[in-house]
Amino acid sequence: MTQTQPNLPKYISAGETPEQHAAFEARIAAGEKIEPGDWMPAEYRRQLIRMISQHAHSEVVGMLPEGEWISKAPTLKRKTILMAKVQDEAGHGQYLYHAAETLGITREEMIEALLTRKAKYSSIFNYPTTTWADVGMVGWLVDGAAIKNQTMLAGCSYGPYSRAMVRICSEETFHHKQGKEMIVLYAQGTPEQKQMAQDALNRWWWPAVQMLGPHDSDSPNTGELSRWGIKLKTNDEVRQEFINEHVPELMEAGLTIPDPDMHQDENGNWIHGPIDWTEFWAVIKGERGLGKERIATRQAAQDEGAWVREALEAYMARPKGEAAD
């Protein structure tokens, strides 16, 4: 923890001066990117490590709910596409761990924080995927919501995070398209396929709306993050963009949005009904959903892989002359 100084705002840590902060904020205001070797406030560094590692963990844990369906995909093409998609999530985790490492933390420390539940990840991945259509719906809605957030982050002030986001967004756009393509097909398929698509929408709609975060009035970190150009839009603004894009497309596919109050206002915005946050917070707190199972699964992979990582280290440490060739 960084100590605050008397009479200074809490985001100015011990040893930092208001002048340093003013110069730092002027760089951000001028649209410059902050790079790893640059001076930055301790609190900026701490917030970025929190956000980027949380984002990396979300990619890694996010492999699990969809990954379960690789073994059950109904065609060879769908199996290949899903494998490629989950592979991309692993790749995103990898770039994001690297981006966070530029701030002075190791991947091992971050993984340890995930497994001991000190670090968070998006609670959307604690919802179960119960049918094959969930794979499509996760691609369409969850990746759709993530893209809105990540497009914003691609403009953020920290160079390595911003660049990782540009690359990730372009891959996520493919994921979003394949998810939408699947659901649109199923909505026009057999009655059973259509029902499966509607059921998936009923399960995923509200979690997707909620995954963009609490209302602005309940979002504790927004102030500092906006000040430093990390977060360029509020949760509610990003949520509105997501809803405006997806509601008409879902309706065009012939599906029903599970929100009886959904309507378009005079400005063309789609307005959602009241959000019931009870489930969202219950899943975050681990009272509902698969949080324990997800961490147990990651822990098992970590434990079962320990001997492999030890073998790699031992191999790398061998004197060159010892090679059998």
């Binding site: 890694v60 492999m63 699990l64 990954g67 690789i70 073994s71 199996k79 494998m83 989950v86 592979q87 692993a90 790749g91 985790g93 990898q94 761990y97 699964t297 098992a300 992979a301 079962e304 892989g305 320990a306 492999v308 990582r309 790699l312």
Partner: peptide
């Protein structure tokens, strides 16, 4: 092989 996706010993091998 697909059974390893998400469960490999290092992230690079998931890929």
């Amino acid at each position: 092989d697909g059974e390893w996706t998400g469960h490999a010993p290092i992230l690079e091998e998931d890929i």
